[in-house]
């Protein structure tokens, strides 16, 4: 897999809000067909990284390349068209629409229906809508096991189901890189396992590359091929899950150094700061 050129490549990405560096020279490759996970403590810059990749933030420096082509000058909708599909940490479903319409919305960038076709619902509009409905039903709704809620308004669904509908919408975007922002946050064990299974199946069945941000270490270590660890906007380690897990710097970032004297000094410093 390492021999393949990366489908997505983040190169020296630097993002600043005022004087705060949210991302500082972040670089990593995403191999085609891999599941790459970005982990790190809260505030490490994981979601900022996602937002910079999908074009929502303008980075100060560095570059994002999709199959070798720099996409830094592209607007978010154009990046979506290239196949960067994503879900959001705090679920961004459209509450005024049904599950089915939310999923269909994902295909927007790949459809050509214009205003006139739409008003008459004739020719291209009808053809495109019918093709889309069939594909959404047979490939996505069926696959994610959400056929019982297709006509439900999204607001009425449980959190776990909403996450699944978001995944469905991202699949409707014809993704090449599926970016999942905390796909199992707030889920119980069973829902987490379901989601992990869906992610693995998506890769198998659709041949999609997955890039995800996740806090659930169990799941990250189980299903990832490549793990990138961010802390204070910098990559402090990356590699195979087991190598990252053993990396002392990662353990320090997550758990502290394990050195009791060091901990005492930090508490003392904190106490002085508070006083």
């Amino acid at each position: 897999m390492a021999a393949d050129s990366p489908i997505l490549e983040v190169d020296g990405l630097t993002l600043a809000f005022g004087g705060v560096l949210a991302l500082n020279g972040v670089s990593f490759p995403v191999a085609p067909g891999s599941i790459t996970s970005v982990i790190g403590p809260n505030g490490a810059g994981k979601t900022s990284l996602f937002n910079a990749i999908s074009g929502f933030y303008r980075p100060r420096g560095g570059s994002v390349r999709v199959e070798g082509r720099a996409i830094d000058r592209l607007h978010p909708p154009e990046r979506a068209r290239l196949g960067l599909a994503r879900t959001f940490q705090n679920i961004a479903l459209f509450r005024g629409m049904t599950v089915l319409d939310n999923i269909k919305l994902g295909r927007h960038a790949h459809m050509r229906t214009g205003l006139l076709d739409a008003l008459f619902y004739f020719g291209r509009a009808r053809r495109e809508e019918m093709e889309l409905r069939r594909e959404v039903e047979e490939r996505i709704i069926d696959f994610l096991e959400i056929d019982h809620i297709r006509k439900a308004p999204v607001g009425s669904l449980s959190y776990g189901l909403q996450k699944r509908v978001e995944l469905a919408r991202a699949l409707a975007m014809r993704p090449r890189v599926l970016m999942l922002d905390e796909p199992v946050a707030g889920m119980n064990r069973e829902e987490t396992e379901d989601m992990a299974r869906f992610i693995l199946d998506v890769r198998e069945e659709w041949g999609v590359t997955v890039l995800m941000v996740e806090h659930d270490m169990g799941m990250v270590m189980d299903i990832s091929d490549h793990v990138v660890v961010l802390n204070f906007g910098q990559v402090i380690a990356q590699g195979l899950p087991r190598d990252v897990q053993a990396n002392p710097e990662v353990i320090a970032a997550y758990l502290g150094s394990g050195n009791v004297d060091d901990l005492r000094r930090r508490f003392a410093a904190d106490a002085r700061k508070v006083a």
Partner: peptide, 10 residues
């Protein structure tokens, strides 16, 4: 019923 209307609502 089409992508245009869905875009508006989104």
């Amino acid at each position: 019923r089409t992508r245009v209307g869905r875009a508006f609502i989104a």
